[in-house]
Design a protein around this nucleic acid. Structure first.
Lengths: 170, 170
DNA sequence: GGTGCCATGTAACGCGTTACATGATTAT
DNA sequence: ATAATCATGTAACGCGTTACATGGCACC
């Protein structure tokens, strides 16, 4: 939100459209979330709003950054994104539980996950060729590139888990 | 929760300890979450509870899977984990906003993120050597392996973003 | 007398998701 | 007529996080 407001004041409706159209590919945020979020940011002192009367169209509420909001945005942009160890990774949990339960073979869990990942990878490659034609292709491509790199890494991890479990067995 | 109960009934306290000790490395779940979760699972019909009176120690409430709970667990274990496109990836948002804002150089954003990732990668390697001594080293190692693969993939993506942004500039 | 283990919970708060409510204008 | 666009919100629900509340026993 702060980032979208940095180039000038906007009202909720425009923010929603800017968010969906320019920033996040394929998104359709609910207005409710936009307005509650703007409310919170206002209470936090990061932006201020003013009502603009329009004779013909409905009145609108224009939001603009405060100095504090501008600072907050700036430090956010300059601060590295935190990286969480994925301690409760769902596949990991399945693997651990299958291992100690012997109702389901952990190697079967891995096989299913890998099959699914490969399918996803395939559909992402397709999505990439489709995306060539789109208007927001820049964003879409980067997101799809990220997704395929993540999938490849995950498949590598599954392979590794398979090895480890095999060793453990013998 | 269902997985932990599959080998036999447990009460909340034991579940918490099993979760923290055997399943998720380094976790310290709040009891509150355990009990509210058990409540929800009970309402969903996946488990049932019975109070066991203990003369000396405080009474305890033992939870066990229902048939439906057992089925649910089984299908969960056999179903591939969903994979989300990370449409609102924080670094991606920073990059897109920096690109259109010209207050912060997107290449600088990438540089900061990469530096941070490399540091994290380094600390994970350290954590791995430390983990050799631990009791739950099996779990910890796999989680750390996942983390380092994820980080490497992310760094690759950052490199790729850099290239794309460079091309766009010229 | 204090620390730690055994054992169960409630309450408050944040935030995301979904659905619902309202009402005017403009284009087909 | 009716669908789309402009414009703003509220309400309900789920779930995670943190903090708080209670009370007995065992061990040092």
């Amino acid at each position: 939100m702060l980032g979208l407001l940095a180039n000038g004041p906007l009202h909720g409706y425009e923010l929603k459209n800017a968010y969906d159209g320019e920033l996040v590919p394929d998104s359709q945020v609910n207005y409710g979330q936009i307005y509650t979020c703007l409310d919170r940011l206002g209470k936090a002192g990061l932006l201020r709003s003013s009502v603009v009367r329009q004779p013909v169209r409905p009145d609108k509420k224009v939001y603009e950054l405060t100095d504090e909001g501008r600072r907050e945005l700036d430090t956010w942009l300059r601060t590295p994104t935190r990286f969480d160890l994925d301690l409760r990774n769902e596949t990991f949990l399945k693997l651990m539980l299958a291992r100690q339960l012997d109702a389901v073979d952990p190697l079967e869990v891995i096989a299913v996950e890998r099959r699914f990942c490969l399918e996803r990878l395939h559909s992402i490659v397709e999505a990439k060729t489709d995306a060539e034609a789109e208007t927001d292709r820049f964003q879409t491509m980067l997101i799809l590139d990220l997704a395929s790199l993540r999938l490849e890494a995950f498949i590598k991890w599954l392979d590794h888990c398979e090895q480890v479990l095999d060793q453990e067995k013998s």
